[in-house]
Nucleic acid binder design. Structure first.
Lengths: 84, 84
DNA sequence: CTTGTATGAATGAACG
DNA sequence: CGTTCATTCATACAAG
């Protein structure tokens, strides 16, 4: 249920929403508002973390295997070539 | 130690007090004034949050379960309506 | 049993 | 000040 809310775009629900969700979850056990709050906090953070690691992996992969320079700006009038 | 200060009523200490506390805490590690400052700021904020959730829980409880024929809710300091 | 991992909780730091 | 973010701690559980 929490994940469905998350998928619907809810990231950092307001206290009101939190309490509403918590009250619906209470049928399954002792759920408090702060539990819901922590869930969203953690889920968002870990989603970001995952995304970050994913990007890092891609970049790393790219730097090691790839062929084209990453930030290759069109060169013009290069007079003296330097080693980088 | 910080909590004892807090319990004694210190909420937003002045720079002078902050530095005094920080200097006493330095024996335990690299404590700076801003660390003490953040501590009081966070502690106060989270104390309020807790209180807020407590109130919300009561309200929620009231709205959902306690359908006693009460006509007036003689509550004061109900932090229920916020921005819309 | 130990090792790895998922997750709730907590807290320092910082933003708007 | 209220809220959000990043990081860490602690624990439960799974894999080996």
């Amino acid at each position: 249920m929490l994940e469905s809310f998350y998928r619907q775009g809810i990231r950092t629900p307001r206290t009101e929403m939190i309490e509403k969700i918590a009250s619906r979850l209470k049928v399954y056990g002792h759920i408090e508002g702060k539990n819901v709050f922590y869930w969203f906090q953690n889920h968002k953070a870990r989603q970001r973390q995952k995304q970050k690691e994913h990007n890092m992996a891609n970049i790393s992969n790219y730097l090691h295997k790839a062929h084209q320079p990453v930030f290759a700006a069109p060169r013009r009038n290069v007079v003296h070539e330097e080693q980088v």
